[in-house]
């Protein structure tokens, strides 16, 4: 601290006027208020579909389809219960009998107003689990591979580096759907059709091109001097990478993780074509809820909600790193 104090010039007269730009007058104040209000309005407009979906998920069926839409309603878990179960419509007598019973589970009680009884589990739970496994694994794999290759591209003299990087980027130039048929045929031959492994490999390779480029930008920003210092201080290149580079690339890794996860999680076309029962993920399953007897809006909304939650969790868990600045170092640009 002593050195810092010594560097500041002595203040002879007290400063009586504010030099802060934002305190100059009323005008900037009003402008910042207006900006704030506009931002809030835009946020509301953007969030309406999400809020609407959330409300619908908790509405009983009549409220979900009523015109004009109801804003106030008694929340129910009907949507969620029907999402995860298979049900049978009860006849009037059966329904009366069910109403008299006292040994009903809470799920059965929830479905009672719909005159339905639960006869088994639906596929959705497993499909959601498939999504978690496939999206999670492919995200972890693509981030690991991407960090390593981005580090190599950033630090070493790789022969044909520019061509390789362009090749990696060019993977993104072709619309993915174009290659669905060849991939479908290859997967059939290789026995990867409808397997979690097949989907993990596919999503990993899709994510890699983008992840390498994104991470390389972040790693380029980390000055090499840190590693030089660590090498001289008695560490190997790999140890220096783990102890010095990785902690500093956290922001980039977090961003790459979120982007990769969102892609793998949301992917629809390949999931629809390359999976059937075993490895089917959630995205192609949600529209199938439409099928059975009338449009189950609250079930669909509940499915979308359940589908949304993991992405929110991942993003929320990494938000601190996403928000933090990239260069936070103690290297002086001389």
């Amino acid at each position: 601290m002593a050195a810092q104090v010594a560097q500041t010039p002595p203040v002879s007269t007290p400063v009586t006027i504010s030099t802060r730009v934002d305190q100059v007058g009323m005008r900037p104040l009003i402008a910042s208020w207006v900006r704030g209000i506009i931002a809030v309005l835009i946020a509301i407009v953007m969030l309406i579909p999400v809020i609407w979906m959330g409300m619908t998920a908790f509405k009983p069926l009549p409220d979900a389809v009523s015109v004009p839409p109801t804003v106030f309603f008694t929340p129910t878990l009907e949507g969620f219960v029907s999402l995860f179960t298979q049900r049978r419509q009860l006849s009037a007598e059966e329904w009366e009998a069910m109403k008299q019973r006292t040994d009903l589970s809470w799920a059965e009680q929830v479905m009672l107003p719909r005159q339905q009884t639960i006869i088994g589990e639906s596929q959705f739970g497993r499909q959601l689990l498939n999504s978690v496994i496939i999206a999670g694994s492919s995200t972890i794999l693509s981030v690991i591979f991407a960090v390593l290759s981005a580090y190599a591209f950033s630090r070493f003299r790789v022969p044909g580096k520019d061509d390789l990087l362009f090749f990696i980027l060019s993977q993104r130039m072709l619309p993915a759907v174009v290659v669905t048929v060849p991939i479908f045929l290859m997967y059939r031959q290789l026995g990867l059709y409808d397997t979690p492994l097949g989907m993990i490999l596919l999503y990993t390779s899709f994510n890699l091109s983008f992840a390498v480029w994104l991470l390389m930008g972040f790693i380029d920003e980390i000055p090499r001097e840190y590693e030089d210092a660590a090498l001289v201080d008695g560490y190997t290149r790999l140890q220096a990478f783990r102890k010095i580079v990785l902690p500093q690339a956290v922001t980039g890794i977090a961003a790459t993780t979120v982007f990769s996860f969102i892609f793998s999680w949301n992917e629809y076309a390949f999931a629809l074509l390359l999976t059937s029962d075993n490895a089917r993920t959630a995205p192609p399953s949600i529209p199938l809820i439409l099928g059975t007897g009338g449009i189950e809006w609250s079930t669909i909304a509940a499915g979308s909600m359940a589908f949304l939650i993991p992405v929110v969790i991942v993003t929320f868990a990494l938000r601190r790193h996403l928000l933090r600045g990239v260069t936070f170092g103690a290297i002086r640009k001389g």
Partner: peptide, 11 residues
């Protein structure tokens, strides 16, 4: 090695 840019580990 003492570097010109100090190179203190920022984390």
């Amino acid at each position: 090695f003492v570097f010109q840019q100090y190179s203190l580990y920022p984390n």
